[in-house]
């Protein structure tokens, strides 16, 4: 279920990257240390996410008579969008605040893992924190030979 939610949130369906995201979420839920911050009245992330996924499934069954994973992609997306706004009113014990916090937690964990994947780094044109060579040509319009290029690099930086 985390995988499918991550696919919608990150807007990417590649199995390998999503598995990486799921592994990250698992690790975060298993680790003994903290989650940096939490609002008063919101349960720890482990409880929030596990309970939240169950509640989402219950809501899916109640509204669409099907489990969340069996829904059409469009229906899943609609549900996630409603969760962001805290508008899934039928979920028992899950008020607006809790829904929003659940969404924010899933979003945060997904995005931080997704944008740490090397494939995604390459796709968006991030050369990475080059080490030990670093970057020599940092100005506009010029690039080091070890950087990714989207298209042919033009200019020499003098036109600024």
């Amino acid at each position: 279920m985390i995988k499918i939610i991550a696919a919608h949130v990150a807007h990417d369906h590649r199995e390998e990257i999503l598995n990486w995201v799921v592994a990250h979420v698992d690790e975060q839920l298993a680790k003994p240390f903290g989650e940096s911050q939490r609002k008063p009245g919101i349960p720890p992330q482990k409880v929030l996410i596990r309970g939240g996924l169950k509640a989402l499934n219950t809501w899916a069954k109640g509204s669409y008579s099907r489990e969340f994973l069996k829904l059409e992609a469009k229906q899943q997306l609609t549900m996630i969008s409603s969760l962001q706004l805290g508008h899934l009113e039928e979920i028992k014990d899950w008020d607006t605040t809790l829904q929003k916090e659940l969404f924010k937690k899933l979003l945060g964990l997904t995005i931080e893992a997704y944008y740490s994947h090397p494939w995604v780094w390459s796709e968006i044109g991030y050369g990475g924190p080059a080490y030990p060579r670093g970057y020599v040509r940092v100005e506009l319009g010029i690039a080091d030979p070890w950087e990714p290029t989207r298209e042919e690099v033009v200019g020499d930086g003098t036109e600024i």
């Binding site: 919608h8 949130v9 990150a10 807007h11 990417d12 997306l77 962001q84 924010k104 979003l107 945060g108 995005i111 931080e112 997704y114 944008y115 740490s116 995604v120 780094w121 968006i124 991030y126 924190p129």
Partner: peptide, 22 residues
């Protein structure tokens, strides 16, 4: 900025996700 920092803050603080963020 770096990808994680930029995307994470855009997501959690500005509410961007899905197709728009991608």
């Amino acid at each position: 900025s770096r990808p994680l920092a930029m995307a994470s803050l855009a997501a959690t603080n500005a509410g961007l996700w899905g197709k728009e963020l991608r």
